[in-house]
Computed example of a mutant assay.
Amino acid sequence: MTTANVVVHPDGSTVRIDIAGEVDLENAETVEEQLSAAIPNETTSVTLGLGGLQYLDSAGLRVLFALAARLEVLQIDLAVDVPPGSLTRRVLQLSGFAGVAALD
């Protein structure tokens, strides 16, 4: 069983969401639901912290692309905090995700 730990840090109109562990086909739907629930309507910006993410497959990428698309429609800024040189950062770069959200 794969596990992902989603921790939400609201701060006024901004939200930081840290995701650790693994996001794959087995838990992607749960993670997607947690992300949606973590972002109230009054949010103006979201930062995803992916420093603790150890594994991300295509289902996990779909979750992140869906989140980016939803936030774009809602006009909510998205930034992704992912360590330089990490495998997660490389996956995001290769998938083209860096074109839809800033990788910090």
Rank of each mutant, 00 (worst) to 15 (best):
P83S: 08
R89G: 00
T43G: 07
Q54K: 08
H9P: 00
T44V: 15
A101C: 09
N27S: 12
V80L: 10
A66K: 12
S13I: 09
A79G: 13
E33T: 07
L35T: 00
T3V: 15
P83L: 12
N5H: 15
E22F: 02
L103N: 11
L71P: 11
L61Y: 01
F97I: 05
L61D: 05
Q75Y: 09
D81S: 15
V6Q: 11
N27A: 09
L74R: 14
G60F: 01
E33Y: 02
D81Q: 14
L71C: 07
D77A: 15
R16E: 11
G12P: 02
G85F: 08
L35P: 00
S58Q: 03
A38W: 08
T43W: 01
V6E: 08
V31C: 00
H9T: 05
L74A: 09
Q34Y: 06
T47V: 14
V100I: 13
I76G: 08
D77S: 15
E72V: 01
T3Q: 14
L48S: 02
S58W: 10
L94Q: 06
T47I: 11
I39F: 07
V7Q: 09
A4E: 04
E72G: 10
P40S: 09
L87R: 13
E42L: 09
S58D: 05
V80T: 15
L25M: 12
A66I: 04
D24F: 00
Q34P: 05
S58H: 07
T88Y: 15
L87N: 10
L53Q: 01
D24H: 00
D81V: 07
R90I: 06
A4V: 07
V31S: 01
V8C: 10
T43N: 04
V63A: 00
D11M: 10
T14L: 09
V23N: 06
G12V: 02
D81W: 12
N27C: 12
V73L: 09
A68D: 04
G49R: 11
V91C: 04
D11K: 14
N27Y: 11
V91P: 01
V46R: 04
V6T: 11
G49F: 12
L87P: 04
M1A: 07
R70N: 15
S86Q: 13
R89M: 04
G60L: 02
L56E: 03
R16G: 03
L56S: 00
S95L: 05
V100R: 09
A102T: 15
D11C: 08
Q93D: 06
E26A: 13
L74I: 08
S95M: 07
G85P: 03
V8S: 14
L48D: 05
V91A: 02
L94H: 05
L56A: 02
A69K: 15
T14W: 12
P10G: 11
V80D: 08
A59T: 09
